[in-house]
Design a binder for these strands. Structure first.
Lengths: 120, 120
DNA sequence: CCGAATCCACAACGATACTG
DNA sequence: CAGTATCGTTGTGGATTCGG
């Protein structure tokens, strides 16, 4: 028999997977890490997240906003100014990203060695 | 003047970004989470990481192996058996993935609400 | 059973141009 | 300055097949 709890769990699972798919990508991570606890404009992010295109930045900012990870503040000035800040859930994810940065620093030598050995 | 340290740092940075690009993707995360501290065969992973195709699993396993995050053990039996296990760096990254799983559980309600509000 | 290679549909991405 | 739309190219990922 399928209970209400079962369907709730199934729904939560599929939602969790969806969130994972959205968020577990390099641009999202780099944007979150770049924002940190600062508030930055679109163009500042564009400059600091290096290698990101206008389009990718826009797309990922929309996605992060949709998931409630960043807050988007529009100042109706001329020219317009738009600022982005991590929300509380966003800061929560930032801890994960930080942990990954720490991991990279810690194991970068091992990884480089593994690669050399694998490639050769 | 560009010192040796500068070039070393630049190299480490670009390497770090490369590692980020490799590893910060959903399949890698799901594989690592599924492996945990177990040793699993290809077909077991195929069954447990749900939705993953043969090809994606192969590609990501190669990538993880190249970066030294998993160990691949081949038993030359008929039919062949291949087993995968997280290495120490792999276990290190697992901590990051775990932290993201915890984050998802903690904020899933907020995220769902944010999405509804954004979509409507 | 595992993995590589092929083919192909479609999504991702960069560049560009246009709007408020 | 920020955002959207369009277009052309590249790349990703699934299905299938063949080989060890």
């Amino acid at each position: 028999m399928v209970t209400k709890q079962d369907t709730d769990l199934a729904r939560a699972d599929s939602l969790a997977r969806e969130i994972f798919s959205d968020v577990a990508n390099k641009w999202a991570f780099l944007i979150i890490e770049t924002l940190g606890d600062r508030t930055l404009r679109f163009s500042q992010l564009r400059n600091e997240v290096d290698g990101i295109s206008h389009k990718m930045l826009t797309q990922n900012l929309r996605m992060l906003e949709r998931n409630g990870l960043i807050e988007r503040e529009v100042y109706p000035t001329v020219p317009p100014r738009v600022e982005y800040t991590l929300t509380e859930p966003g800061q929560g994810l930032r801890a994960t990203v930080d942990s990954m940065c720490g991991w990279t620093r810690r194991f970068i030598e091992d990884i480089e060695a593994a690669r050399r050995s694998f490639d050769g």
